[in-house]
Design a protein around this nucleic acid. Sequence first.
DNA 1: TCTGTCAGTTAACAACGTTAACGTTAAGAC
DNA 2: GTCTTAACGTTAACGTTGTTAACTGACAGA
Lengths: 201, 201
Amino acid sequence: MGITERREREKEEIRRKILDAARELFMTEGYDKVTMRRVADAIEYSPTTIYHHFEDKDDLVEALCHEDFAKLLEALDPAQMPADPIERLRQLGLAYARFALQNPNQYRFMFLTPREEHPHPEDSPGYQSFGVVRQMVADAKAAGRLRDDDVDAMAQTLWACVHGAVCLVTTFRPEQFPCVPPAPDLVERTVDASIRGLLKE
Amino acid sequence: MGITERREREKEEIRRKILDAARELFMTEGYDKVTMRRVADAIEYSPTTIYHHFEDKDDLVEALCHEDFAKLLEALDPAQMPADPIERLRQLGLAYARFALQNPNQYRFMFLTPREEHPHPEDSPGYQSFGVVRQMVADAKAAGRLRDDDVDAMAQTLWACVHGAVCLVTTFRPEQFPCVPPAPDLVERTVDASIRGLLKE
DNA sequence: TCTGTCAGTTAACAACGTTAACGTTAAGAC
DNA sequence: GTCTTAACGTTAACGTTGTTAACTGACAGA
């Protein structure tokens, strides 16, 4: 049975090659510039080959971003956060923002592109990432530090605020910002303000 | 000179027709579905004609959104807001969100599409819209209600938070939300939390 | 040795943004 | 009244995109 295994391995290898080439293009030039032909050129295969490994372009980019959700989940590792529940939340927000600013194109696709697709399954990194936020909010609430009872709503509120800040910063170049360029610490300020807005008192 | 005037008028009319047809497509089906050919079909002209009125597709959509910035500015009319500076800010945030939720496709193009283009000129509705926010934050600060001194940074923070909430709500359908569907009042909650996060005390 | 599967190819399709080349119309110059 | 010129419209094409049908060749298993 070593032959079919080698076949499997080879198939996996070229799938990997496609993903790597696509990621390179995606990170440096964005979604539009990832054309099937350019990816094919990069790996020195014909465009049709890609369709033997991915259903279509969206499926390819989806696979790319599936991997990135795993990276996001890693970046949010609670083990690396301080003990104080509020300080933990703060560091979580900053880690999330750091990921977004370091991978703006992936971030756009992950959180800014409407999907026809079904929800993330419960064991997916995407689902789990939100679970981390939710858990930390629940902890802060259990510690009596939050003003509200609805953990989900509070977690979503925090997420929304940080999401908004990184969207603005990654969409507009500084000189395109309305009136004045973005405060250099806009993301931090947003994290702080949104958390403060949920605190008791 | 009545003739050249009629010519002008006719030219303006077809420009209007193009814009209206494009807006219809844009609102109901989104940016991708606005193809030059479909717009041309809708107004019963050849695609080439559009190029006599707009430089290219982006120029067309840009013109569309220029009109929408004017609508946004209208929607933010401070005259319709209550007197209390904090309550004013709150109503401003809600009005902004209402505009975004009612015109999701335009909103995406206005605030979520990276532009090569230069900043909005000072007298443009886009620039002025942020001016409204800025002014209300300045008023609240003058009333001694805010904790911080940097008016621009605070205005941007508020903007970021509301922006984030409407982005999430317009990007994901409820069943695609991670873990649980969005709190029905997520936008309100975000407005409230972000303002609260800037208050003195 | 034959057969069927599977990974890869070429060549084409339809749709897109865009443009060159070509009418047609009519305003303004003489 | 005739000529020129500009404006506005057309058709037909170019190059690019995602995608697919139809073929080719290798090779495991009977």
